[in-house]
């Protein structure tokens, strides 16, 4: 697989996209990028362009679907939305993350044995 030049792991980017679409409904690429920036309070330095390969991958797996439509400003854009399969995957990925996070937490803040 081609290595991405991004600070963000490919799996996390995927999850961010999915969650965004879950909460925002259908959104075009620029919209997704802006939303991610907002939610992470600009803490992530993601090249916006790296979104598109990720979107392609998700679309190939049929987790999201795309349609051409008009944006709020009257511009023609491609809109993405979650599929039913995608909904399922979001829940799975969320669970995965929670597990990873809680495990890491246990490592990073050791229980004091007293």
């Amino acid at each position: 697989m081609h290595m991405e030049r991004t600070d963000v792991h490919q799996g996390t980017l995927d999850l961010m996209i999915l969650k965004t679409l879950q909460s925002m409904g259908a959104l075009h690429g620029y919209g997704i990028a802006r939303r991610i920036e907002q939610v992470s309070s600009d803490a992530l330095s993601v090249n916006q362009g790296t979104l598109y390969p990720a979107l392609l991958r998700l679309e190939q797996r049929r987790w999201i679907r795309s349609n051409w439509g008009t944006s709020g400003t009257g511009r023609r854009a491609k809109f993405y939305s979650l599929t039913r399969l995608g909904e399922k995957k979001v829940a799975e990925e969320e669970e995965n993350w929670s597990r990873i996070v809680s495990t890491m937490e246990r490592f990073l803040s050791p229980v004091e044995e007293d």
Binding site: Y30, Q48, Y52, S71, R75, K78
Partner: peptide, 17 residues
């Protein structure tokens, strides 16, 4: 062609903003 259009659209949106 579609990709080109999509990316153009993204950049134009950013420019607008």
């Amino acid at each position: 062609e579609e990709l080109h259009e999509e990316l153009e659209s993204h950049i134009e949106s950013a420019v607008e903003e």
